[in-house]
Amino acid sequence: MDLLVVVDSDDDKMVSHELEQMRSKLEEAILKTRSMPFENRPRLLRIPISGQNRSVVRSLNPMLVTYLEASQDLCETDLILFGAAVAVCRIKCAKLPMAGCATKQSRAIPA
């Protein structure tokens, strides 16, 4: 699948090799998300707003067009966008906690 990549002038430091790696991570994340039950999706982390993070998102946006145009319903669109969010986390090397994994529980008494 050939995708057209449009790079903003702010992103001119990214070379095509980096964009291909990003595309690969995006495709992998979307494929994994499609085959994964909703309950098993990883929890997404909040990534801070920065110029570098925005650059990653701006670079992935044109890559999503092909997937979104082929989307047939809202559920599929949700899977694509969730896969894109997972890809951004992976590109930024954020470790995603898997759903259903034991998490550290607070011993504080709820208000």
Results as ranks from 00 to 15, higher is better:
V6L: 10
F38Q: 10
M22V: 07
K104P: 00
R54L: 08
P37R: 08
F82H: 08
M36N: 13
A87V: 05
M36R: 08
A108G: 05
K95D: 04
V5A: 14
L19F: 02
D73N: 15
L45S: 15
M22S: 02
V15W: 05
P110D: 15
M98V: 03
F38T: 01
P97V: 02
D78C: 04
E39T: 14
E76P: 04
E20I: 04
I91Q: 13
L19Q: 03
R54I: 09
S16L: 14
P37N: 15
T103F: 02
A94T: 06
K32R: 15
L64Q: 11
Q52K: 05
V88Y: 06
C75T: 07
V88F: 06
G83M: 01
P62N: 11
K32W: 03
S55H: 10
A102I: 06
M63L: 15
Q72C: 06
K104W: 10
T66C: 12
L26I: 08
S55F: 03
E76V: 03
D73G: 12
E69A: 13
L45F: 07
P37L: 05
V88I: 13
L31H: 11
V7S: 04
A84Y: 03
A29V: 07
S24V: 02
C75F: 02
E39Q: 15
A85Y: 09
L44R: 09
A87C: 01
S24H: 10
V56D: 07
R54S: 13
N40D: 11
R41K: 03
L3G: 00
S71P: 02
V88R: 10
V7L: 12
M63T: 10
N40F: 00
I47R: 00
E28R: 08
P48M: 07
E20H: 12
A70K: 15
R23E: 11
E69D: 14
N40H: 10
E39S: 14
L60N: 08
E28S: 10
G83S: 01
N53Y: 06
C93P: 05
S71T: 11
P48I: 09
A87G: 01
S50E: 01
M14A: 12
S59M: 11
L79Q: 15
D78A: 07
E39W: 09
Q105D: 09
G83T: 03
A108H: 05
C93L: 14
K104N: 14
S50W: 07
A94Y: 13
V56R: 06
F82S: 06
K95A: 01
E28I: 00
Q105K: 12
A85R: 12
E69C: 11
V5M: 09
T103M: 02
S55M: 13
E27C: 05
R107K: 14
I109D: 11
